[in-house]
């Protein structure tokens, strides 16, 4: 498989008053074309900061990043052409209908009116959103809103789609529906870079995962290999066990107990 995203020694710190807090502290990542890459970590691990650097929203303090062989510092415009990003808050405009919002997004990528309309129709159909085409977000269900956010992020047929906690706040049914959509996207050839808090989600969707804690990557591998590595004979460890062991949460709670 060919490499689509690569980072080395990625760093970002925030200044609050006199203190400098390292949010991302030397992250090395490799994502391959066509995979669903699960990016996990506890709150405050630095996942979103990493994602914001990869999507050109935030300038790293140090480190190399290349996406589709484009360098983040030299060719951010090229990177913007080939990525899609769905942030935690989504990004659908509350004052626009789904149709208007998709057309605007398509036009911002330079599509003609006709191309934009064709692309918007395709995405509405693919994500089962025809019924909300002419409605504004106030009337959508949580699942519909999320699928529209994803449609917006997909409008430019990105080579790699970043999804930041896409199922947070969804009911179990909508979540499973969204998982199916994400798998469909991958089957159509889109690489997916997914952050999530939910271990069963990462386990169900990801081809490979990386676990981040305190600004660093503590573990990378396929879900199966990571689970097997800590399973003892007879008991099968879950991804949750892997996560807790490697983010140090087991040890701390054991000490408190």
């Amino acid at each position: 498989m060919s490499q689509i995203l690569y980072t080395s020694g990625l760093q970002k710190s925030y200044k609050t008053g006199k203190e400098t807090i390292p949010a991302v502290n030397g992250v090395d990542l490799e994502v391959f074309s066509g995979e669903i890459f699960g990016f996990l970590g506890p709150n405050g691990a630095g996942k979103t900061t990493t994602l914001r650097m990869l999507t050109t929203l935030l300038q790293p303090d140090a480190g190399e990043v290349s996406i589709c062989s484009y360098d983040l510092y030299q060719q951010p415009e090229k990177i913007r052409e080939v990525i899609g990003y769905v942030s935690q808050s989504g990004g659908a405009d509350k004052d626009a209908t789904a149709w208007e919002d998709l057309i605007l997004q398509a036009r911002l990528y330079g599509m003609s009116k006709r191309e934009a309309a064709a692309r918007a129709s395709d995405l509405l159909a693919a994500l089962g959103l025809e019924s909300i085409a002419d409605r504004r977000p106030a009337t959508y269900s949580g699942g519909q809103k999320r699928r529209l956010d994803i449609a917006i992020g997909m409008i430019n047929r990105p080579k790699i789609l970043f999804l930041d906690e896409p199922t947070t706040g969804l009911d179990p049914h909508s979540r499973e529906q969204l998982w199916d959509e994400v798998r469909k996207l991958r089957d159509l050839g889109t690489t997916i870079f997914l952050t999530t808090h939910y271990m069963e989600e990462a386990d169900a969707l990801s081809d490979r995962i990386a676990i981040m804690d305190q600004g660093q990557i503590v573990l990378t591998g396929t879900p199966a290999s990571l689970k097997d590595a800590i399973s003892s004979s007879g008991t099968q460890a879950s991804l949750n066990d892997v996560f807790l062991q490697h983010t140090g949460r087991y040890n701390k709670s054991a000490q408190i107990a």
């Binding site: 999507t55 808050s89 911002l108």
Partner: peptide, 8 residues
């Protein structure tokens, strides 16, 4: 943020 991720 959504607009800033596009080449707009």
């Amino acid at each position: 943020e959504r607009f800033r991720v596009t080449p707009a």
